[in-house]
Design a protein around this nucleic acid. Structure first.
Length: 802
RNA sequence: GCCGGUGUGGCGGAAUUGGCAGACGCAAGGGACUUAAAAUCCCUCGAUGGCAACAUCGUACCGGUUCGAGACCGGUCACCGGCACCA
């Protein structure tokens, strides 16, 4: 009989649908718990693609193995369903986004069943379900009550096409991450979350986490902690001009000061600044430029020197010219920079462009050619008063202490991380549960009022002035103040797509709870997530945001752990046949449905894991899928013709133990490709030795996490008890993984000249003798003198002959 | 520019972390079975030379350490990802 994958897969999938065998049991103290997490998908209209199948299959394999090892496994799935594509589709087709979402989720669910994933289907979450976003809103209210959510008017990233603000993390190379349109700075009043308050903890707590190193590095770089010094300069009108510097040792090298064009001093100084027209024109020009233009022009330094005001050096008392220039960012440090052209290349470029003096305060470079920027802190201070003769390394703390004692400065830590712009001018997101009252200011809704439901609107389109579609719903907007009962207006912006995913793993632990986001017992039992695998692209977005929210929930006593995820790994992308990213426009997208139709889900699963190193990008090849199918065909054939014995075939014993060992270890280290290769090698060996039912039953247990349907079917054919997925994970006996005889390499002067077979565990001198006795080696021995013999146990003998 | 990562047959990729380079698979070639094809099974498959046993070369490039280097060290190049005027 042929391997009829369609019939087999349908049979087992409908059985699983009925039995729901993968339910997790909260509170089971008889077994160790394991929570394996994948990033829940955004249910797009295109459905599941092979890019999902890779991480999903991987975690499914891990969880299936953990179950067989006796763990109480929670492997949940859900849908991160708020977001722009759904809203845009809804606008275009005049369908409510909730209906679009429902249909897409139904399609995804079907596809996930089709691939045989062992999710706990009783715990599905949907971020757009009011029963879910009630708690997203609840967490937001707690953030608000603790002062971590605030509304501020500031220059924000504005996508010209989405007509919506973007978080810093959503701007990639000056354009919108989602649509690729230009991003400009726009002054807008926005809800912000104080993630910066957690910056230190977000960095420091990484040390104890089992995250792959590149994730930690990327988060550290993104948060960008820098230790430096603030120094107070003064303006001639008496205003304090505080700067931030990491090189306070160069204080005597300052020849000018620069303000960011957005600096509030500029408006204050309007009447003092004699060339205000010129300054104002520059400020306006800077505001008009998109981020892209601003960085593209970074070779040519531009700026305006302010007339009528100067700065005073805090030590020398010298007058210094003040400039405005867009190379100084308002969002970092103090928005004012001390210009040290001798030792900072940007300052050097600026000073050169404006003909400003360049003073050398660290010797060792040629400051007439370029700034001398130290990398190893070993330069010697010159022209620097009491610092002269010191190394830079010593001068930095010396100056830091000195300015602190004099009261003109202080140590300061800065971060690149900015607060999180949290509001979006969009319909399809969680409503922000706050109202504005002219008397009371921003007032939170009573928690009993949650969820604050999204109202029905006539149009989902943003207004041209960039207001949320909700702003037009006057019935909804106009409300009463929960505090004073007077007239009030609701916030009409919604939360960003990232909100719902910040805490979804907690909801999985207790998804039907209507009293709390999850019960304490459930959180205590399941948390933290034992293993979270996801894409690198979320490292400085979702992963960082959810660590932030979790730390906040820890602070208010909702969760017992500081960190949400104990372990984080990451998979590589699946590229199209030509080695390029899969995309609709390139037409190289592979639809898993087609592969399943043609070869079956088990082949699909096997291939996506066999395609290459899980952590690296891999190129899809529909041609190569056949190899995985052939492997399953061969297994099917062996099962149908199994030798009539439940014993292990002696000739297969050693390779069986080796394969168990290899597969067991490789799953833990994400080496699925070599685990499958090992099983293929085993089946090749069956080709020479034949395979008994006993041999094949072991293979089925190893195979079942990878290819669960065929493994169940074969288990049944082989007369196994129950289902193979309910069996224990096979154990290997180390002593049986060793062959009786091993082949060793014989080298002469480091070059392979022969091989020999010796009994396993032979002592060194036996190996040496075997090597010397080898027929092929004799001529080398005769050609010179043996001066040294190197023996590596069980591996090789190297004869040094001169 | 800065921070990561990668570079191995025609292709995807292995290599116990310093010990037989190319496991496993795809493609290709040859053979068996078949009226034929597909499927399946068997063999070959880094390069060069040789009838052959075998020899020489070979893991991006140059150099080094070592009895021995794909792996370690120094330098160079290429590609991929992230950040990018962060003072």
């Amino acid at each position: 009989m042929k391997y009829d994958f369609t019939a087999i897969e349908n049979k087992w999938q409908s059985k699983w649908l009925q039995q729901q065998p993968y339910g997790a049991v909260t509170g089971d103290s008889t077994r160790e718990k394991f929570m394996g997490l994948i990033e829940f998908p955004y249910p797009s209209g295109q459905g599941l693609h092979v890019g999902h199948a890779r991480p999903f299959t991987a975690m499914d394999i891990i969880c299936r193995k953990k179950r067989m090892e006796g763990y109480n496994v929670l492997f949940p799935i859900g849908f991160d369903a708020f977001g722009l594509p759904t809203e845009n589709y809804a606008i275009k087709n005049h369908i409510h986004p909730a209906i679009v979402t429902r249909d897409n989720i139904a399609n995804f669910t079907k596809q996930l069943h089709m691939l045989g994933y062992s999710f706990d289907w009783d715990r599905v979450v949907d971020t757009t379900d009011p029963g879910y976003y009630k708690w997203t809103q609840w967490i937001f209210l707690q953030l608000f009550k603790k002062g971590l959510a605030y509304k501020a008017s500031m220059p924000v990233n504005w996508c010209t096409s989405c007509k919506c603000v973007l978080a810093n993390e959503e701007v990639v190379e000056g354009v919108c991450e989602r649509c690729g349109s230009d991003v400009v700075r726009k002054e807008k009043s926005q809800w912000m979350l104080k993630i910066t308050e957690y910056a230190d903890r977000l960095i420091d707590d990484l040390d104890d986490l089992d995250y792959i190193e590149r994730v930690k590095i990327q988060q550290r770089n993104w948060i960008g902690r820098s230790e430096g010094t603030e120094v107070d300069f003064t303006a001639t009108n008496g205003d304090k001009m505080t700067v931030y510097t990491t090189r306070c040792d160069t204080l005597f090298g300052v020849t000018y000061m620069v303000l960011s064009p957005e600096h509030p001093y500029l408006k204050q100084w309007k009447d003092i600044i004699e060339n205000w027209d010129e300054a104002e024109a520059y400020i306006k020009e800077a505001a008009r430029k998109s981020d892209l233009e601003r960085t593209e022009l970074n070779k040519e330094k531009s700026g305006v020197r302010l007339q009528g005001i100067e700065a005073v050096h805090p030590v020398s008392g010298k007058k210094l010219p003040i400039f405005i220039s867009d190379y100084v960012l308002m969002g970092y440090g103090t928005g004012i920079v001390m210009g040290v052209p001798g030792h900072d290349q940007r300052d050097w470029d600026f000073a050169t462009a404006f003909g400003l003096p360049i003073i050398e305060v660290v010797s060792g470079g040629d400051i007439t050619k370029e700034a001398f920027v130290l990398k190893d802190d070993t330069g010697i201070m010159v022209n620097s008063d009491f610092l002269n003769g010191m190394t830079v390394k010593d001068a930095i703390p010396a100056m830091k202490n000195w300015v602190t004692e004099k009261g003109i400065g202080r140590p300061k830590t800065n971060f690149k991380l900015r607060d999180w712009v949290f509001s979006r001018q969009r319909y399809w997101g969680e409503p922000i549960p706050l109202v504005w009252c002219d008397k009371c200011g921003w007032v939170p809704l009573d928690e009993k009022e949650l969820p604050l439901l999204l109202p029905e609107v006539d149009s989902y389109e943003v207004t041209d002035d960039g207001e949320s579609p909700l702003s037009k719903m006057t019935d909804w907007v106009n409300t009463t103040c929960p505090h004073c009962g007077g007239p009030a207006k609701r916030e009409t912006d919604t939360m960003p797509q990232w909100a719902g995913s910040c805490w979804y793993f907690l909801r999985y632990m207790d998804p039907h709870n209507d009293q709390a986001l999850a019960s304490k017992e459930a959180i205590d039992y399941w948390g933290p997530v034992d293993w979270y695998n996801g894409g690198m692209e979320h490292t400085t977005l979702h992963l960082l945001y959810s660590r932030f929210w979790h730390k906040f929930l820890y602070d208010i006593g909702v969760v017992p752990t500081k960190e949400p995820y104990a372990k984080r790994t990451s998979h590589g992308m699946i590229l199209g046949e030509g080695g390029e990213k899969m995309s609709k426009s390139r037409g190289n997208v592979v639809n898993p449905n087609d592969i399943v139709d043609q070869y079956g889900a088990d082949t699909m699963r096997l291939y996506i894991m066999f395609v290459g190193d899980f952590e690296k990008a891999a190129i899809w090849s529909t041609e190569a899928v056949k190899g995985s199918k052939r492997f399953l065909d061969r297994i099917w054939n062996f099962v149908e013709n199994a030798t009539d014995s439940d014993e292990i075939t002696p000739a297969n014993e050693s390779i069986l133990h080796k394969t168990i060992k290899k597969v067991t270890q490789d799953i833990e280290t994400l080496k699925f490709n070599t685990a499958i290769a090992a099983m293929m090698a085993l089946v090749n060996e069956f080709g020479s030795n034949g395979a008994s039912r006993g041999d094949l039953k072991i293979l089925m247990r190893l195979l079942s996490p990878f290819a669960p349907h065929i493994a169940e079917e074969c288990w049944e054919i082989l007369g196994g008890e129950g289902q193979v997925s309910q069996q224990s994970w096979p154990q290997y006996d180390e002593s049986k993984t060793v062959d009786a005889e091993v082949q060793i390499a014989i080298q002469v002067n480091g070059k392979l000249r022969s091989t020999a077979t010796v009994p396993a565990g032979s002592p060194d001198d036996v190996l040496a003798e075997a090597a010397k006795a080898d027929e092929k080696i004799k001529k080398y021995l005769e050609s010179g003198t043996l001066v040294k013999t190197i023996v590596v146990k069980g591996k090789l003998v190297n004869l040094i002959i001169k």
